[in-house]
């Protein structure tokens, strides 16, 4: 049986741990609220833009644009969005599981230090890594998106895909792959997104053969495409942030609850040990008195 002193020491350390996890939970909770709001507010915009683009891609007959032409896929280009810090439950490891399932050759651009470490550790091709701080700004993400598009342009990669923890609710984040380039399967991607969120897509009108473009299709396409890509990656990064904070909050809450439970057990054990000590002492005193008498 451990001595009361040992147990007391353990109780103290568990208490400290609980204090820390509690603080982290509170911090994560307040950040989560903001991040979730940002992610959910941007969702209609992102989806509407994707739909617009799909309509456009459908109707532009001379799909000469390099973003629209499917080419033979030798190397996949993947943007992986992870977190900078750990202690956020299974968030990152779930993403990595998805990455390990990719058997075809692929090159990665990673946001977040955890992802960079993983890609380096598993000897995958890392094109570039970017930090993932708490204030995700559009300008930061634009750099990532533009970098990847450049690689696509140069032929280093033949697709641009994005892996991020899709935010469903505070408890559920689903690691998801979505393809950004080429745009041939935008429609499929959007349908998938709708299925994932459970929202009903707006009823599609039968594709009319004619659509008017002003000034003309090419100009619209050329200004819409880069904006779409940047916005899409930005939106995904926002969602990843919301997921990270949610996941961290839940993980910290579990840790706190576990610490509380452990504390109860330890206190019980401590009291038992203390009681045993007292009983022992009384016994000894009684025995001494008995022998003296």
């Amino acid at each position: 049986m451990p001595s009361t002193r040992d147990i007391r020491r353990r109780i103290k350390s568990v208490k400290n741990t609980r204090q820390i996890t509690k603080a982290m939970e509170l911090v994560a909770a307040s950040k989560m609220k903001k991040a979730q709001q940002a992610a959910l507010a941007g969702r209609p915009y992102a989806e509407l833009m994707a739909r617009m683009l799909a309509a456009l891609a459908d109707r532009v007959e001379e799909s000469q644009h390099e973003f629209l032409v499917k080419r033979e896929v030798k190397t996949r280009g993947i943007i992986l969005i992870t977190s900078d810090k750990g202690l956020c439950g299974p968030l990152n490891s779930n993403l990595f599981k998805l990455v390990t399932e990719i058997k075809t050759p692929a090159k990665y651009a990673v946001i977040g230090r955890k992802g960079t470490q993983f890609i380096a550790r598993t000897h995958r091709a890392l094109l570039a890594d970017f930090p993932a701080n708490d204030r995700t700004t559009f300008a930061d993400i634009k750099v990532v998106a533009e970098f990847m598009v450049q690689q696509y342009h140069k032929g280093v990669v033949d697709t641009v895909e994005i892996i991020w923890p899709r935010f469903r609710n505070t408890l559920v984040q689903v690691p998801t792959v979505m393809s950004l380039l080429p745009l041939t399967d935008v429609k499929a991607a959007i349908a998938e997104l709708h299925a994932a969120t459970g929202t009903v897509p707006v009823k599609e009108t039968p594709a009319e053969s004619q659509m008017l473009f002003e000034p003309d299709a090419k100009v619209v396409l050329e200004s819409l495409l880069p904006l779409y890509l940047n916005r899409q990656v930005y939106h995904q990064a926002l969602e990843a942030k919301a997921s990270e904070h949610s996941s961290r909050m839940v993980a910290m809450k579990t840790a706190k609850d576990n610490a509380t439970k452990l504390l109860g057990d330890l206190t019980l054990e401590y009291n038992k040990a203390r009681q045993a000590g007292i009983t022992q002492e009384i016994l000894e005193i009684a025995a001494a008195q008995f022998s003296a008498a």
Partner: peptide
């Protein structure tokens, strides 16, 4: 307000995508 000037949309307008 579009790049080429103002466009008025009434019900039954032809499908249009504009900047």
């Amino acid at each position: 307000p579009t790049l080429d000037g103002e466009v008025g949309i009434l019900p039954g307008h032809i499908a249009l995508l504009t900047q």
